[in-house]
Design a protein around this nucleic acid. Structure first.
Lengths: 137, 137
DNA sequence: GTGCTTGCAAATCGTTTGCAATAGC
DNA sequence: GCTATTGCAAACGATTTGCAAGCAC
């Protein structure tokens, strides 16, 4: 499915800016911050503003097109892969790795109830020192 | 174990301010923010500064006395319960509930390796609408 | 009296807001 | 033309920093 089709499916009108942000998310599985996305797209769309990037990412998160990762307390990171998976955050270099999810998988129906609460999102992450940083020691 | 003993055990000198913050965390399982802790302790310790609360919480997190919860992208919350458990965050009221951890429990030895990374912390949380907010609908 | 701890004030910076300009049907 | 979208500039607010004063052994 193309980025354009994905947006149309969610009822989001595919403006140049929105397509560029979604394309970036789908082609760069680096869990970028809003700022990283903004800087990367500046060349391509010189008039792009950071506000639009923030607006667009919020729209994507609200519509289930992207995930908001709040692992790093300084910046929010975004993930275009909305499938159930975990992350590993390196305290030394700040890199975010994808990891398999190790918890109970929620039932097929997207909505699940736990202790009376309606669960809409499931998050799991690990923190530590990544293998790349460990090699440098 | 008293708060004082806990601090001594970790090699943290138990100042009035540090004891007050730890006491607050252990007696209020509400996952408070730095600001909430500051406001609550202002009466007790009129000279307390927010900087000291931030310094103290950082010290606690670095020494495994408290957990830093970055679920809410606006404020960091803190938890004096460092045992392995999950959280539920209500998108409507912002309340944080304790939940059982549903993933694989890490091995007894505190350090665990996953895909070559050294894991020091494991986090799991859910987001949705809590039972209290659901009743209001 | 030396080193750790505290606390004020200012700075930082990621993010949000207000609002006017623009684009697309 | 009307509505949705964009983007600038300013505001916001949680957290950090620099540094001087205070405390404790």
């Amino acid at each position: 499915m193309t980025a354009r089709e994905k947006l149309l499916e969610c009822g989001i009108s595919p403006s140049v800016q929105r397509l560029a942000v979604l394309d970036y998310l789908l082609n760069h599985r680096t869990h970028p911050t809003a700022d990283e996305i903004y800087l990367a797209l500046c060349d391509e769309i010189p008039t792009l503003s950071k506000t639009t990037v923030y607006n667009t990412l919020k729209l994507f998160v609200d519509n289930g097109v992207a995930l908001m990762l709040t692992i790093n307390e300084r910046n929010v990171h975004f993930d275009g892969d909305v499938s159930l998976h975990a992350h590993f955050y390196c305290k030394r270099c700040g890199h975010l790795y994808d990891m398999p999810y190790s918890g109970k998988h929620p039932s097929k129906s997207r909505m699940q109830t736990m202790e009376g609460h309606t669960v809409e999102e499931v998050h799991q992450y690990y923190k530590g020192i990544c293998r790349s940083c460990l090699q440098e020691d």
